[in-house]
C-alpha cells in the first residue's frame, strides 16, 4: 500500500508537469487543432515551399521529344518546354515553293490533279476576320506573323493563337488547358496548340466512344 501511494505520487507529478509544459506551448497546440480541422484546400494554401517531388524526374521519358523553351512568359510563370512543331512540318521549308507569288503558283498548278494544300480548308473564323495572311507571313512563308506584322516561328505558334484566345493561353501556361507529355514530374513538356487543334478547322468533331466492353469466353 505504501508503494502504491509512492507510485501514485510519481505518476501524478509526471502528468502535472506534462500539463504545465502543455500550457506553455499552447500556441502550437491550438495551431495543430485548427489545422486538423481545416479542409484540405485550406491546408494546401499554407504549403508554399519549393518541392523536389521526391527527386523523381521524367527526363528519360521526354528525351526523345524535340522541344523548344516557351517564350513570352510572364515573370510569375515557371519556365517550361513546348513540343516542337517545326520539325513535324513535312513541306517545310515553305520557301521551296513559295519563292514565287501565289498567283504564279496557281497558274503553274492549274493543270495538276491535286494542288499542294488540297487538304487545307479554312474554317476558323468568319471571312472578314481571318484569311491566310492573318497568321501566315506572306512576305516570308517560312514564318508566321502577329497581327502587328512581327514574325513568329512555327515552333512558337501558340503566340499567334494567344492573340485572340488569351484565356486559353493563360490556362495553357499554368497547365489548366492543353496536354502535358511524359508525366507529372519535372521537366514540364507540353503540346503546342496545333498538336491537338487543327489550326485551319479548330472545332472538335463527333465520334464514337472507345469500345470498352470486350467479352472473353
Amino acid at each position: 500500500m505504501k508503494h502504491f501511494t509512492r507510485y501514485f505520487l510519481i505518476v501524478s507529478a509526471i502528468f502535472g508537469l506534462y500539463g504545465l509544459v502543455g500550457c506553455g506551448n499552447r500556441d502550437h497546440a491550438d495551431f495543430a487543432a485548427i489545422t486538423k480541422h481545416r479542409s484540405l484546400p485550406e491546408q494546401l494554401e499554407h504549403i508554399t515551399e519549393p518541392n523536389t517531388n521526391g527527386g523523381v524526374t521524367i527526363d528519360a521519358l521526354v528525351a526523345e521529344i524535340t522541344t523548344v523553351d516557351a517564350i513570352g512568359l510572364p515573370p510569375d510563370i515557371q519556365p517550361f518546354q513546348v513540343k516542337d512543331r517545326l520539325v513535324e512540318l513535312s513541306k517545310y521549308p515553305c520557301l521551296n515553293c513559295h519563292s514565287k507569288s501565289i498567283e504564279q503558283l496557281k497558274i503553274e498548278q492549274a493543270d495538276s490533279l491535286r494542288n499542294a494544300h488540297w487538304d487545307v480548308e479554312l474554317n476558323h473564323a468568319p471571312e472578314h476576320v481571318m484569311k491566310c495572311g492573318t497568321c501566315h507571313n506572306e512576305e516570308n512563308f517560312d514564318q508566321l506573323k502577329t497581327l502587328n506584322g512581327e514574325p513568329v516561328s512555327f515552333s512558337h505558334s501558340y503566340l499567334i493563337c494567344a492573340q485572340c484566345h488569351s484565356q486559353q493561353h493563360e490556362d495553357w501556361m499554368i497547365g489548366a488547358h492543353g496536354k502535358r507529355l511524359g508525366g507529372w514530374a519535372p521537366p514540364r513538356v507540353v503540346n503546342n496548340c496545333t498538336h491537338c487543334h487543327n489550326q485551319h478547322q479548330p472545332a472538335w468533331g463527333k465520334r464514337w466512344p472507345a469500345r470498352v466492353t470486350q467479352t472473353v469466353h
Binding site: N51, I174, G175, A176
Partner: peptide, 9 residues
C-alpha cells in the same frame, strides 16, 4: 500532379 508542390499544374 503533386499537391505539395506549389508550382504543380
Amino acid at each position: 500532379g503533386n499537391l505539395l508542390d506549389p508550382n504543380s499544374e
